[in-house]
């Protein structure tokens, strides 16, 4: 990583704890690259995470960083953002953290349209606890708690967040690293709740059980199965198979929560003065 980017890292904490070939470093680089390209003041960026492999990322990032409890990063972030709306608050989470134990916070933050950027390092598995299935593990794939194959239907996290009212929703993968950086940039710039579903390979605990033992094999799987939003729409649903869409799925304007609440404060203070 160029020295212009290592200034955003706590280099004394490296090498990181992730396995060889893990995609989380690629997503983390994409985030700091996006921050760099946007020219954000690092003092005004706060990065908040929950629990899991993904959530170790903020410890390596040279901003104000908060590593919280499992699933609750978005709720902590809501407090930080409301207390200091001028901060850029970025939440780093994983698929288990965001969609299982923290699912409630994800949908409600999206509904409120509070100005947080949530980046889900989505490796479809619980890596930190060595490979249990998550709410996004594909049907039929194997996990330490799905030894006969996954029988639960997975969430599409982008559809979930769009359904809940999130106003910026995008997906990319670690194969598409430059595209990933670009959608993260757009997400950070978006005023309101933004969500990036960042597919990130876990060769150790997902790949090994699913014939994708090498990181490269997993990245090639992303390459072969990712299709643009436009192309996705052209494929008949019955023929989609393991393919998935990437790109920006939603980018809409709507009243942002902190701004709406600021108006509440103005109204309450004015009425208080009138009394």
């Amino acid at each position: 990583m160029g020295s212009d980017l290592t200034k955003y890292l706590r280099v004394e904490k490296l090498p990181h704890i992730w396995c060889a070939g893990c995609g989380h470093g690629i997503v983390t680089r994409a985030i700091v690259k996006a921050i760099d390209e946007l020219g954000l003041d690092p003092v005004k960026v706060t990065v908040i995470s929950g629990i899991g492999c993904s959530s170790r990322a903020p410890g390596y990032m040279n901003f104000d960083t908060l590593h919280t409890t499992h699933g609750r990063a978005i709720a902590f972030a809501t407090g930080v953002k409301l207390a200091r709306p001028e901060l850029k608050v970025i939440v780093i989470t994983g698929d288990g953290d965001a969609a299982a134990i923290g699912g409630n916070h994800l949908i409600h933050a999206a509904r409120r349209n509070i100005d947080l950027t949530v980046i889900c390092y989505n490796n479809t598995i619980y890596g930190m606890t060595s490979g249990q299935y998550s709410p996004v593990t594909p049907l039929g794939s194997f996990a330490s708690t799905a030894p006969y194959g996954m029988v639960e239907r997975p969430f599409d996290l982008c559809e979930l967040v769009m359904g809940a009212g999130g106003t910026f929703v995008a997906r990319s993968t670690t194969y598409h690293a430059r595209h990933l950086t670009n959608v993260i940039k757009q997400a950070i710039q978006h005023k309101g709740f933004s969500f990036v579903d960042a597919f990130s390979q876990c060769p150790t605990y997902f790949g090994r059980r699913n014939n994708l033992r090498e990181a490269l094999a997993m990245l090639n799987w992303y390459k072969e199965n990712a299709v643009s939003r436009e192309d996705w729409a052209k494929i008949p649903p019955t023929e989609r198979g393991s393919k998935f869409p990437i790109g920006v799925f939603k980018d809409e304007e709507a009243p942002e929560y902190c701004e709406s609440y600021r108006k509440v404060i103005e109204k309450a203070m004015k009425e208080g003065d009138a009394k």
């Binding site: 990583m1 890292l9 070939g21 470093g25 680089r29 994409a30 990181a215």
Partner: peptide, 9 residues
């Protein structure tokens, strides 16, 4: 950009 370890510039 594909180095997961921040090890290449």
């Amino acid at each position: 950009m594909h180095c997961p370890d921040f090890a290449i510039a």
